Amino acid sequence: MPKSQPVPLHREDPDKPELVGNIKVTREDWLNVARDILVSDGVGEVKVLTIGQRLGVSRSSFYWYFKSRKHLLEALLDDWEARNTATIVSHCRMPARSINAAVCNFFRCFIDPDLFDQGLDFAVREWSRRSGSVRQRIDAADSTRLQAVQEMFERYGYAPDDADARARILYYMQLGYHALEVREPMSARIDRLEQYLVGFTGVAPEPEDIEDHKAFCLSVGSG
């Protein structure tokens, strides 16, 4: 399963303003460590004491930012939606010269870990197996994401029923690709890109669609 990308604590990041007074960690620090624990160990291990030990602070710091563990878990879900669902929606709405270029924008979310946290997405899905309320949020997020992909196809002239089917094929394939933990170099995926795009859109891509996407892949170190 993909892992979330560790984020330096505020006090360890030279780009962040210096902490003053008795503040040793920030709300973002609590969320970052909670997210890492959620991804690596599951929601059952997201505990105030455990997070505090990793941060090197007392429990009182936690209650400065959160009312309770439940409040922290709600914040984690909000963070997940902002990181992952909002990213997919925004990339589906990005201007593109063709449907194939638009699909490549969608692919970017799953190539750059700064755009879409795959480990976090799977951790929340695993969490939803044990929580009906989290299951509802997963279902709502998937519906929002699928709607964005469908609207992307419709903008390029696809009929609603056709756009709906293509959106589901594209979205479910992409999630399944990572759920199966397919191991292959990015160069192999790029070699298949033209055929993938034809399969998803029914339209042969222009050479610049392939070259632009390849350049993006190499720019994020995935090649």
Rank of each mutant, 00 (worst) to 15 (best):
S222W: 12
L19P: 07
N32R: 06
R83N: 04
I210C: 14
S133H: 06
V7Q: 13
K67N: 14
R129T: 04
R155C: 05
S61M: 11
L115F: 06
S133R: 09
K16V: 03
I88Q: 00
F216R: 05
P113L: 10
W64V: 12
D79C: 01
A75Y: 06
R59H: 10
R54W: 09
Y171T: 15
D139N: 14
P205V: 04
R166E: 05
G42S: 08
F107I: 05
P6N: 06
L180T: 07
D117E: 10
L72I: 11
L19N: 00
L49K: 13
C109W: 00
V198C: 06
C92L: 03
S131L: 00
A159L: 09
I190M: 15
E81N: 10
S131E: 07
A179Y: 15
L9P: 00
A102F: 03
R168N: 09
Y63W: 10
D79P: 00
R135V: 01
L72D: 03
V89E: 13
D161A: 13
D29G: 08
S58P: 01
A188N: 15
D117Y: 12
T87G: 13
N22S: 07
V103K: 02
R137W: 03
N32K: 01
C92E: 04
E45S: 14
V43K: 05
R69T: 04
L180F: 11
Y171E: 10
G202W: 01
A215I: 11
E184A: 15
L76G: 09
W80S: 00
V149R: 04
P8Y: 09
P14R: 13
P8S: 12
A96Q: 08
P205I: 00
D164T: 02
V48N: 15
I51M: 04
L9C: 01
G42N: 11
E81R: 15
R189V: 11
A82P: 05
A86Y: 03
A123P: 00
F110M: 09
V43H: 07
P17F: 02
R189H: 12
S222E: 07
R168Y: 12
C109N: 10
G157H: 07
V203K: 08
S68I: 02
F200A: 12
Q174Y: 03
K67R: 12
F122V: 01
P6R: 06
I37C: 09
G223E: 11
